[in-house]
Amino acid sequence: MWKWLHPYAKTENAYALCNTLLPWFWAGTCVFLSVGVVWGLVFAPQDYQQFESVRIIYIHVPSAILSMGAYVAMAVAALVGIVWQWRTAFMTMIAIAPVGAVVTFVALFTGAAWGKPMWGTWWIWDARLTSELILLFLYIGVIALYGVFDDKQQAGKAAGVMALVGVVNVPIIHYSVVWWNTLHQGASISKVDKPDVADPMLWPLLICLAGFAFFIAAVSTVRLKSEIVRREMHRPWVQKLVSNDGVSSDAI
């Protein structure tokens, strides 16, 4: 069943696959993000409680969902790497990590910018913001651990173990934080509920979600290509690729 995947354990095939997929990822990013953002900013209705500030939802919610999604993708790559000893899987894992961290940062920042008009303060220890913050720490931990090893094969394995430990913890952290948050509900700040997402808001939201997903896939693919080239620098196929292809055409 999984046999079709096996050739991609070889870096050369994985690199070729990256090159095939990348234009589609970029196309998806451009189409979905621009349609979703324009729809969300211009055409979607305002919320009766939050007025125009609700338009932040079209970047906050997709980035929040996909920051978790990217972490899970990273952990799946780590698991594949540890179980089947695939070097490309570890490379994929470390290619996703910085992208996931940036998306997590976006979720945090947009959450804060939404919180200021709604809650009257930039930061509130709201369940979602708190677990996003912890998620950012987990991403930074994986990236930092990868960085301290000189031997990148060893680094991939070590960071992979940490990513797996983290992914077991992500649901525990999330639910414990939600539970902690309901326990310590602050009385001084009147909390406006996140709006129930109605149909005319749902479509642009879903389109933005797809756009962010394509974005993460595209940037991770570019980073994966770099990672493969860096690790396989002295292989004949890389040498050939560079001398034939030149530099400019391969970059994006």
Binding site: I134, F137, I140, A144, L145, V165, G166, I172, I173, V177
Partner: peptide, 14 residues
């Protein structure tokens, strides 16, 4: 510390 503190948060909460 960077690796472990985030992971101990649920323990701290409960």
């Amino acid at each position: 510390a960077l690796l472990l503190i985030p992971i101990f948060i649920p323990l701290l909460i409960f």
